[in-house]
C-alpha cells in the first residue's frame, strides 16, 4: 500500500442478535472522524444470522461492513472473537478502531490491542482528529482520545503517535446517535470463519440476560441523589420527588456504593450518560465522572449545602440548602400549583 489506510472501523456488538446502542453511537461519531480523515467508515459484525443487523450499519454511514457469520459465533466468546478481529485488523490495517466500553468491548479490545501492539485508550469521553506536535515531531491527523483520569481530577488527551492502529473504547450514551436520512449504499464483505480447538478452552454453560427495566436514557425528567442524602431512608425523598413530577430515580456512584440506589440507576462515566430535559441533582457534589454523565441535560437544578460544590458549575439553577428540607418543599409547592 503506497498511502496509509486511514479508515475508521467500529466493532458492532450484538447480544442475542440485537445490536448494542453504543455501536451505532460509535458509527455516528466514526462517520465524522472519517470525514475529517477523508477516509471511509467501516464496520465489523460477528455473530450468527447477522446479515440484517449488518445492513443496519448502512443507516449510520458504514461504506463496507465485514460480516463473520457462523452458528458457533452466536454468543460472544473472547477467544474466537479476538482471533477473528485480530486477523481482520492485521489484514486491513484500519487507522482507527472503536469499541463500546461494555463488558464485551472491555474484554475484547485489550486482547486485540495486545496482539497487534496497538495503542488503546479506555472510556473516552470525546474523540477528535487533529494534527499534533509531539516531542518536536509533527503528526498529521492523529486521533485525540480524551478521558478523565486520576479519579476525575484531570482531563487527559491521549495520543498514539507511532503506531498504525489507534484503538479506543467509549461508554454507551456518550456519543450521540445520529442515523442518516438516507442509508448509504454500502457493501457487505463476508469473511469465512474457521473454528479452532483453542476456542473450546472456555465453554458457556448458561447465560442469563434481562432487558434493562430501568430506562434512564429515555427519561425526560431525572431526579438524582448523591452521598449527601446521608441515608437510604433519606433517599426515599428522591423517589417521592420523582414520582410527584413524573421522573425517573437515579444516583451518583457514591450513592450506589453506599447502597442508597441500585447500580442500574447510576449516572456518570461508569454508569449511564443521560440528556433529559430536566435533571435535578440532590446532595451530589458533582465529581467530573458524574458531570460527564449528565452535563448535557437541557436544564439542571443542583441542590447542595456546599456553595462550592462542583455540581453548581454545570447547573442552570442552584439552591444552596439542605436537600432534606428543599425536596419536601418542592413536592408540596408543586402539588399546590397543580391543583
Amino acid at each position: 500500500m503506497g498511502t496509509m489506510n486511514k479508515d475508521v472501523w467500529v466493532f458492532i456488538e450484538q447480544r442475542n442478535g440485537k445490536p448494542a446502542d453504543v455501536s451505532f453511537e460509535l458509527l455516528s461519531k466514526g462517520r465524522k472522524l472519517a470525514e475529517n480523515l477523508k477516509s471511509n467508515l467501516k464496520a465489523v459484525v460477528i455473530g450468527s444470522k447477522v446479515k440484517s443487523l449488518a445492513e443496519e450499519t448502512f443507516k449510520f454511514g458504514s461504506t463496507e461492513t465485514f460480516v463473520v457469520d457462523h452458528p458457533e459465533l452466536e454468543h460472544f466468546r473472547t477467544l474466537p472473537y479476538s482471533r477473528i478481529l485480530t486477523e481482520l485488523v492485521e489484514n486491513y490495517k484500519p487507522r482507527v478502531l472503536l469499541f463500546g466500553a461494555t463488558v464485551i468491548g472491555r474484554d475484547l479490545a485489550p486482547r486485540v490491542a495486545s496482539h497487534t501492539k496497538s495503542g488503546l485508550t479506555a472510556d473516552c469521553t470525546d474523540l477528535q482528529i487533529s494534527t499534533v506536535k509531539y516531542l518536536k515531531k509533527d503528526y498529521e491527523d492523529l486521533l485525540l482520545q480524551i478521558r478523565p483520569a486520576f479519579g476525575g481530577n484531570i482531563i487527559a488527551t491521549i495520543i498514539t503517535p507511532d503506531v498504525e492502529i489507534q484503538m479506543a473504547t467509549v461508554r454507551e450514551g456518550v456519543m450521540r446517535l445520529e442515523p442518516l436520512p438516507i442509508p448509504v449504499n454500502g457493501k457487505i464483505t463476508n469473511i469465512p470463519y474457521a473454528p479452532n480447538d483453542v476456542d473450546e478452552l472456555i465453554k458457556i454453560i448458561e447465560q442469563h440476560r434481562q432487558e434493562n427495566k430501568v430506562n434512564l436514557k429515555g427519561a425526560p425528567i431525572i431526579v438524582s441523589g448523591g452521598y449527601g442524602m446521608g441515608t437510604k431512608e433519606n433517599f426515599k425523598l428522591i423517589h417521592e420527588l420523582a414520582s410527584t413530577i413524573g421522573g425517573e430515580v437515579a444516583g451518583s456512584r457514591a450513592a450506589v456504593d453506599a447502597g442508597f440506589v441500585s447500580v442500574d440507576r447510576q449516572v456518570g462515566q461508569t454508569g449511564v450518560t443521560v440528556r433529559p430535559k430536566l435533571y435535578i441533582a440532590c446532595g451530589i457534589s458533582g465529581a467530573i465522572q458524574h458531570r460527564a454523565g449528565m452535563k448535557e441535560s437541557n436544564k439542571i437544578i443542583a441542590i447542595n449545602t456546599d456553595p462550592d460544590a462542583p455540581i453548581f458549575g454545570v447547573a442552570h439553577y442552584g439552591i444552596v440548602g439542605d436537600a432534606m428540607q428543599i425536596i419536601p418543599m418542592f413536592v408540596n409547592v408543586f402539588k399546590q400549583k397543580l391543583r
Partner: peptide, 16 residues
C-alpha cells in the same frame, strides 16, 4: 504506544 499529549485540570465554569 499511548502518550499523554495534554493534561488539563478540571476547571469549572461556575457562576453561570
Amino acid at each position: 504506544p499511548t502518550k499523554v499529549h495534554k493534561i488539563e485540570s478540571v476547571v469549572l465554569a461556575g457562576g453561570n
